[in-house]
Design a protein around this nucleic acid. Sequence first.
DNA 1: TTTATATCCGATTGATTTACTCAGGTATGA
DNA 2: TCATACCTGAGTAAATCAATCGGATATAAA
Lengths: 158, 158
Amino acid sequence: MKLSTKGRYAVMAMVDLARHSNGNPVSLAEIAERQEISLSYLEQLFARLRRGGLVKSVRGPGGGYLLAHDRDTTRISDIILAVDEPIRAIRCTPGMSVGCRGDRSRCLTHDLWEELANQIHLYLSSVSLGDVCEKRVLGTSGIVQREAYRAMEAVVLR
Amino acid sequence: MKLSTKGRYAVMAMVDLARHSNGNPVSLAEIAERQEISLSYLEQLFARLRRGGLVKSVRGPGGGYLLAHDRDTTRISDIILAVDEPIRAIRCTPGMSVGCRGDRSRCLTHDLWEELANQIHLYLSSVSLGDVCEKRVLGTSGIVQREAYRAMEAVVLR
DNA sequence: TTTATATCCGATTGATTTACTCAGGTATGA
DNA sequence: TCATACCTGAGTAAATCAATCGGATATAAA
């Protein structure tokens, strides 16, 4: 899982869309102005989001974009995976580049990066668009999340 | 916390150092050959690792690098922070760029990225150089880690 | 004292990625 | 028909990455 400002822009735009759409399509021009992202760049991002099945488009005047699914079932991880397409976890397995040449000396750090990617994906798939909209990200609610957080804390404070 | 192949190289090199140093200094030339990283690039990385207090250098013939601390107290997170210096979490707070201009409309995604950075740092600081060397990364041991993992899993499968 | 070893240091470079622009094309409601 | 807004692809400045080059400095061994 790759983490860049690209994914960050996409999430910001999707949150904006979720908040300002009351069943009506929201135009990219609106989002661009509110979030201070260039229109053309948003168009690129939404092209990927559409192909990823996360939004639906309505063409013509009064058109724009709609969430394809409910805001509470749209995961942050899906948004990032949609815009950062090349899902190659940590460029290790495919081209066997950067050491880690499959043979006997399988690189020792392989498991580490794989597990880190796991952790990141786990967290981001535990948060929905609705969670972010309602500021439910490690807020006062979210019991299970805080449980997990406490367990992680136990690890570092061992 | 920034994640790049730069940090990845640094961790690979540090693991190599930890494994092949029996109290003796290990030269970068050795590490470069084993890990297939260019010598000059390693020099750049180890300059930062030295400034970060993670390794000690011994100059002259027979010289090389030594771990500054025990392999079990050297955290992966410290290695990555040392080479990726600009610790700016997610370029939000300092230049108030990319939306999130401090005023009333504090960007909604701010908490999300902050918490994600938290999660990543939490995980990487729970793993030591020794853990990676002994393949204790989510292996068959590491009870607390697996507990945390299961808790996270409960979140995504809610 | 010379010499080979190896850390140090800075400047530069090709390749890649990012964030963005430009120039159009296409569907559709008014 | 016309303005709106989605759609597409090509191109671009800036930044970063991974690496190279040329040297300086310290030091153990000859």
